[in-house]
Design a protein around this nucleic acid. Structure first.
Lengths: 154, 154
DNA sequence: ACATGATGGACAATCTGGTTGACTATATCG
DNA sequence: CGATATAGTCAACCAGATTGTCCATCATGT
């Protein structure tokens, strides 16, 4: 083999996974045991002003039905709530609850802590360089986290 | 918000995804249109000497039945073949075919090319630093790519 | 004002890939 | 030899996605 290029994607994935796993371990300790990796991304996509199932589906790159099911799941856990839109009675606005916002706030703080650990290990200089390099190599940042299905599909 | 820590995992994921997508676009051009992200990982796990469904399941962190179905899918595409083990008639050895090995070899070359592009953009120094830093922050080596299921699970 | 078309949401059927459980055949070990 | 463990397969089920269909409601153009 002796392919140097194999390591890069593998390490990127491992690093991502490690951060996410540590995030959720800590979230569980802080009163959010039901939070799943998917939830954070979806709640970010919902945003502070709320959204609708159709719009959410477009943002996430999945069908509106799939988005609807995801919203149902988040509703069951208590992270979002649905309300009618007075200006368009077809629409049902999906909004984050206080509990959901708490999950997001805690996630942010935990990610900061994890980043601080990286800075501690690597040095702030090196970490800034790493972030800058990743920023340089990745697309500006459109969401489109259609991870489910993307990796799978044999 | 102003959470600096949010960016790191997101960029790691985007970078990983970008590399994998580019890999598969190029693989499709090179005669492997059926190759899916999962396949490369599974074929790596199978290794040059072959393995069995049970063993593969343990390596990948899934049930032996799931591993069996995955092997079936790879067999349909022509990446692996199954043969009886003369020394233990219960076992069926799963081996990479020439076509499967070709896919792995091409993957390695394409990853090298992609890495070269990164080196071109960032400079070899910076890329080496990035790889070194990721190596430092991620666990030594465990496979255990039980991605399916891990991210999902609402 | 109203017919037409577009949009939001829900329901149902299906597909895929995972799970557990049960079963058979074969090894291995006391 | 008999008891236990292991490899593989079959079957049933579950979760999360898909498409297709339907209905209610908005928006538009004549």
């Amino acid at each position: 083999m002796s392919s140097q290029g194999f390591e890069l994607p593998l390490r990127l994935l491992l690093a991502f996974r490690m951060l996410i796993d540590e995030l959720h371990a800590e979230l569980a300790r802080q009163g959010h045991p039901h939070m799943r990796p998917m939830h954070g991304f979806v709640m970010q996509a919902i945003g502070p002003d709320g959204t609708t199932a159709v719009e959410l589906g477009r943002t996430l790159g999945v069908s509106k039905q799939a988005a609807g099911k995801t919203v149902e799941a988040l509703e069951r856990v208590g992270y979002v709530e649905r309300a009618a839109d007075p200006r368009d009675t077809r629409r049902k606005i999906v909004r984050l609850t206080a509990y959901g916002i708490d999950a997001l706030n805690r996630s942010a703080r935990i990610f900061d802590t994890l980043r601080a650990r990286w800075a501690d290990e690597l040095g702030e200089e090196r970490l800034l360089a790493l972030e800058s390099d990743l920023r340089k190599m990745t697309p500006a940042s459109p969401w489109r986290l259609d991870i489910p299905g993307w990796f799978g599909t044999l």
